[in-house]
Amino acid sequence: WVPDSEAPNCMNCQVKFTFTKRRHHCRACGKVFCGVCCNRKCKLQYLEKEARVCVVCYETIS
């Protein structure tokens, strides 16, 4: 899990986070992404309901 303080930009597209461009943690890899790069949901083994995942993890999992 990457702390918010260590991620000033999206770890995929590099967009800078602001008050309106929020950070989202991928529940699969723990990296920090913008809403566009972390907009998929899928079922993870260790969680009961679907969770937010990044586009890279989504392609790997599904």
Results as ranks from 00 to 15, higher is better:
W1N: 02
P3H: 08
P3Q: 08
P3R: 10
D4L: 08
D4V: 04
D4E: 03
D4Y: 05
D4G: 03
S5E: 07
S5K: 05
S5L: 07
E6R: 04
E6W: 05
A7C: 07
A7G: 10
P8S: 10
P8Y: 08
P8T: 12
N9H: 05
M11F: 10
M11K: 08
C13L: 00
C13D: 02
C13H: 03
Q14C: 13
Q14M: 13
V15K: 07
V15G: 12
V15P: 00
K16H: 09
K16E: 15
F17N: 01
F17Q: 00
F17G: 03
T18Q: 03
T18H: 06
T18S: 13
F19D: 15
F19P: 14
F19E: 15
F19G: 09
T20P: 07
T20C: 08
T20G: 06
K21G: 04
K21W: 11
R22C: 02
R22N: 06
H24K: 03
H24L: 04
H24P: 03
H25F: 04
C26Q: 01
C26D: 01
R27E: 03
A28M: 12
A28H: 08
C29T: 01
C29F: 00
C29Y: 01
C29W: 00
G30S: 06
G30N: 13
G30W: 05
K31Y: 09
F33N: 08
F33S: 03
F33D: 03
C34Q: 01
C34S: 01
C34D: 03
G35H: 10
V36K: 09
C37W: 00
C38R: 08
C38W: 03
C38V: 06
C38S: 09
N39T: 14
N39C: 09
N39K: 11
R40A: 13
R40I: 04
K41D: 15
K41I: 13
K41S: 12
K41E: 15
C42V: 12
C42D: 15
C42M: 14
L44E: 04
Q45R: 07
Q45D: 15
Y46P: 15
Y46K: 12
L47K: 10
K49V: 08
E50M: 11
E50D: 15
A51K: 10
R52I: 15
R52Y: 04
V53Y: 05
C54T: 01
C54A: 01
C54I: 01
V55T: 10
V55S: 11
V55D: 14
V55L: 13
C57G: 01
C57Q: 00
Y58K: 04
Y58H: 12
Y58V: 10
Y58A: 04
Y58Q: 04
E59I: 06
T60N: 13
T60A: 11
I61Y: 13
S62P: 15
S62T: 13
S62C: 10
